[in-house]
Structure formats: C-alpha cells, structure tokens
C-alpha cells in the first residue's frame, strides 16, 4: 500500500469508526468525557502524521490500532493529573524532595542553570505510581505462581481484609499475609529505587 493509499484508508476508517472510538473512550475513561472530542482529534492528527509524514507501515487492523492510540493518549491525559496530584499532595515539599537519599546532592559547583536542568531531569525521571504498579503487574504475570500475589494485592487495595481475601481465594490466611507482604515489599523497593523526586514515595510512606 502506498502512502497516499494508506492515508486514504486511515481517513475512511477513522470516519467509519469514530463513533465506536468515542464510545470506547468514554466507557473506558469516563473522567475524560468532556475531552473526548479533543483527544480523538489529536489521535487523528497523530495517526495522520505517522502514516503520511513518517511513512509508518499501515496496521493490519486500522480500528484496533486507532483504539490503541486512543487508549494511550487517554492515559497520557490522566498521567498529567497523576503527576499533579503527587506533586501537590500535602506533605510533599518540593524543596525538601529535590535531593533524595539515593541520589547525590546537587554539586555546589553547579551554576543556577545547571541546577534547574538537573531538577527538571529528576522531575522527568520521577516514576509515577501507575508505572510501578503496571511493572508489578507484568512481574506477576511472568510466573503463574505470582498471579495469586497480584490478585491478593488488588483485593487488599480495594479494602478486603486478609481474612476475606483468604476466603475469596480459597487460600490460607498465612498464604495471604505472605502474598501481601511480597507485593508491598516489591512496590516499596521499586519506589525507593526509581521515584527520584520522592513524590510518590512520600505520599505512600511518608504519611499515615
């Protein structure tokens, strides 16, 4: 398929499936309902750019591909909010958190512009909670025996007691406590390693 043919196929598919994409977006991400049209417009522009300007290979299933882009852009929108929430959560002082125990302090010899650049770098590197949890999820999925850890942890995040989790999963209470400990320790360690500005870490562990 030539690039003009691909662009035509994209245009035709987008118009045909626009209502379904909109429905998907609003169902999956109801908080973004008011922005759904803008997101779809940006998805269209991004898809057009990829096909027309970057000559990306056209996908086998246009609609599935567009849905994937819609999902990614919707999550991007929510991640901006997530970042905002963590950086403004009470108790997170940006001056205090600019330097972390696991990174060296700013070099006193650095000039102001260097410090600003360094701080921006750390901000960009800040690993959000959603990243850590998604990584935890992929870790659990690598081995079947870890799936119970994920299920138990997800149940606990939604308020189930260890006893209720044990009953629901047909497991012993000891197993559940062990799974929850493993999950929490995995997440805690990952945050300590990656959350360079500590916004997530302080939110989770700095407050009761």
């Amino acid at each position: 398929m030539t690039t003009p043919e691909s662009v035509n196929a994209l245009t035709k598919t987008f118009h045909m499936c626009r209502a379904r994409l909109l429905g998907y977006l609003v169902s999956a991400f109801p908080r973004l309902a008011n922005d759904a049209d803008d997101i779809l417009q940006n998805v269209w522009l991004e898809a057009h750019r990829r096909i027309a300007d970057e000559a990306q290979q056209p996908p086998e299933n246009w609609e599935s591909w567009l849905r994937c882009v819609v999902r990614s852009r919707a999550i991007d929108h929510l991640r901006v909010l997530e970042r905002h929430i963590f950086l403004n959560w009470p108790g997170v002082n940006r001056e205090d958190t600019a330097t972390t125990p696991w990174e060296p302090a700013d070099n006193e010899a650095d000039g102001p512009s260097q410090k600003v650049l360094e701080r921006e770098r750390r901000q960009r590197q800040g690993l959000l909670l959603s990243d850590v949890l998604a990584e935890f999820c992929r870790w659990c999925e690598k081995r079947p025996q870890r799936l119970a850890i994920k299920e138990a942890y997800e149940r606990s995040l939604h308020g189930q007691s260890p006893g209720a989790i044990a009953t629901a999963m047909g497991a012993s209470a000891d197993n559940v406590y062990q799974w929850l400990h493993q999950a929490r320790e995995w997440v805690r360690q990952r945050l300590a390693e990656k959350d360079v500005d500590r916004s997530v870490f302080l939110t989770l562990y700095g407050r009761k």
């Binding site: 991400f29 908080r31 929430i85 959000l128 949890l133 995040l157």
Partner: peptide
C-alpha cells in the same frame, strides 16, 4: 490515591 491510579489509569490491568 492508590485506588484512583488502579481504577482509572488501569495500573493493574
């Protein structure tokens, strides 16, 4: 906060 990240950003999907 944690539930919002799980429920709306699909962190444990």
């Amino acid at each position: 906060v944690v539930r919002w990240v799980v429920d709306e950003l699909g962190a444990l999907c």
